[in-house]
Design a protein around this nucleic acid. Sequence first.
DNA 1: AATGAATGAGTATTCATTCAT
DNA 2: AATGAATGAATACTCATTCAT
Lengths: 215, 215, 215, 215
Amino acid sequence: MMKREVKASVKDERLVQKRRDQMIKGAVQLFKQKGFHRTTTREIAKAAGFSIGTLYEYIRTKEDVLYLVCDSIYDHVSERLQQDLERKQGTLESLRQGIANFFHVMDEMQAEVLVMYQEVKSLSKDALPYVLKKEMEMVGMFETLLQKCIENHQLSLTETQIQIIAHNIFVQGQMWGFRRWALRKLYTLDEYIELQTEFLLAGLTKFQPKGEQNE
Amino acid sequence: MMKREVKASVKDERLVQKRRDQMIKGAVQLFKQKGFHRTTTREIAKAAGFSIGTLYEYIRTKEDVLYLVCDSIYDHVSERLQQDLERKQGTLESLRQGIANFFHVMDEMQAEVLVMYQEVKSLSKDALPYVLKKEMEMVGMFETLLQKCIENHQLSLTETQIQIIAHNIFVQGQMWGFRRWALRKLYTLDEYIELQTEFLLAGLTKFQPKGEQNE
Amino acid sequence: MMKREVKASVKDERLVQKRRDQMIKGAVQLFKQKGFHRTTTREIAKAAGFSIGTLYEYIRTKEDVLYLVCDSIYDHVSERLQQDLERKQGTLESLRQGIANFFHVMDEMQAEVLVMYQEVKSLSKDALPYVLKKEMEMVGMFETLLQKCIENHQLSLTETQIQIIAHNIFVQGQMWGFRRWALRKLYTLDEYIELQTEFLLAGLTKFQPKGEQNE
Amino acid sequence: MMKREVKASVKDERLVQKRRDQMIKGAVQLFKQKGFHRTTTREIAKAAGFSIGTLYEYIRTKEDVLYLVCDSIYDHVSERLQQDLERKQGTLESLRQGIANFFHVMDEMQAEVLVMYQEVKSLSKDALPYVLKKEMEMVGMFETLLQKCIENHQLSLTETQIQIIAHNIFVQGQMWGFRRWALRKLYTLDEYIELQTEFLLAGLTKFQPKGEQNE
DNA sequence: AATGAATGAGTATTCATTCAT
DNA sequence: AATGAATGAATACTCATTCAT
């Protein structure tokens, strides 16, 4: 997908990438602790390992940092999920794996994802669409996963059902990230994955019009 | 539940309540539009219909306003849900009704709920627990609803299953509020409720160890 | 003339006037020494005797201070000149007096006038017209003075001649303010006034179409 | 006149001159539009066609650019005026020509002259005298022109009168540049020249102690 | 000689909070 | 109880200047 351009004064593309990586890394840590608004640009520069002047050689406004952070988080998550899509597919087992994988990513990147969800609103009307589009793409990955199962006659679902289930998987993954504080008292991550997957598949197969559900 | 005390200089309790209601009403509108951080205390005072000096007669810090707003939103939602709990219960039909009702509330209060979720992090370590507790209470309502069904032999679930399902219902409700921008393109609210409930009940009844699922 | 409004947060008009007077007084001193651009808003606030926060209760931007300063200078000069217009008129003697008076004002307010001329360019497109209009008004005063002499048959000039002479008087007055560094080495203020007036009247009377010039 | 030295790191004198010419050309354009303070060194470098690093090989500080610009403007104007001095002289006609010529130069270089007058104050105490000296030289040219007329018995003036008239010519020329916004509404440049010259000569000849004025 | 990345002091402006009236 | 003027710490962003390559 075409990215929103964040203008840098520095020309050397490789350097821009390097400095921005430093910047994002530092910013995520800070945003986790204090949120976007309570983090100052000087803190970001310092955490990134360079001066405030240098920071502004690579961005135009503080909001650019937020956009860069959001963009990078999505890229990380997407990349991880993409791998699942490329493996053996169309089996309920691969669906289970995909879900489990996603939940694990959400657990690992909990802080980042939390940051993103609480700060996207601070993105300008300009940057927001790019971020939302990315999110749709991720939901799309689960739709594809389900589609493959249908093509492989493991499931039988309408288009509408596919969409809502993909959404649900996505949201339940985020839920672990968001509400870990509550859920952890009840389950470990693996128990949570087990339960959610089981419940999901229970519903899924129950959805099916006719008899031959597997298992 | 015992509320966290927000200190006021003014003694007249009735007046305090009245002024705070004005304050919350104004603040919610502003937070919806610009978020907590971009809203100034002067704007809040103005929207509430009094001066900045007066505002500070009823709160200690800006964050108090946020707490008051969050608290008030929960109260509204809770109140609405409470009504369902008091009606005829223990039937799957009443569960359906409870879910539908919750989703409708989430739709109506979408902006408020969104505000709350994006700003809770800004609450001090002091206020946060009170808000999270409220949230647990709301999940608890769905647990109760499910419990009633079990007692009434309409469902058969383990404690663990009850908890996760209550969480799921709660999160799916919020999901409509949060992700309405995406979901609306696919479904109306009623279609969404219908789909989610059907899917939920499908899974729910499939969960049941043995035969006699109703319907 | 209708003034350009400079918005203040403070309502009490009397207080606004008082604070702005303090502000202008301080700012003029600073602008004299270091110019508009090299003067910081904090310095202006300090020189005015209040805090930076208070400064911004009475203006919107730094440029507002410059506008206020320019406006105030014109008001001072205009007021002084206005007095001449109201005295006995229509004689060459009153014209001489008016010129002398203006040159004296320019000498006294040399610093202020210098400030104004070197900084007007920094005024936004918004404020500039108001300042230029004031200047035209001042030139207009000399036109009136000349007109009176004509009506009184002391002079005989075309409209075009009136205009250019009024301009010349005005500019020669400013010239003393601007170029005092050079002129002072040659003449005292009174000598300068004497010379310029004599030369002016020499030309003026020479302009006259017919014979009987005075002297 | 000995120029104030502006230190360059580069040794090749020819190159220094070339680069500085580029620099001045670019800077004048920028100063016209935005003034000295609002123009950045990067913009100057870019307008000159080289990098910020290179800029600083040819100057020490930003103020050096301003000095160079002022110096160059004076050189241009002086050069143009010098030509008049070398032609047939001592006649009132040549004086008229000299004035007209100067006014035309002021019209053509209006922007540059305006820049200079509004920014000289920004020159350090170090550079200012050099610029003021140049100005005195230009006034001196008119004194010479008048002197020639006296030697040629076309005029009869005291030293003091010569000085003030030279000043007046100079200032009236600048006046056209400075106040063109107002004067243009009343006269074309040629009308203005005609009027001012006529008026000047009227006064001039009136100054004369006794009879034999020409024309 | 030329480049342009790095620096950080400097600046206008905002805004939560206080307090005298 | 209500007001709103005063405060000043805090903060995003700029830009002249340096220096390693």
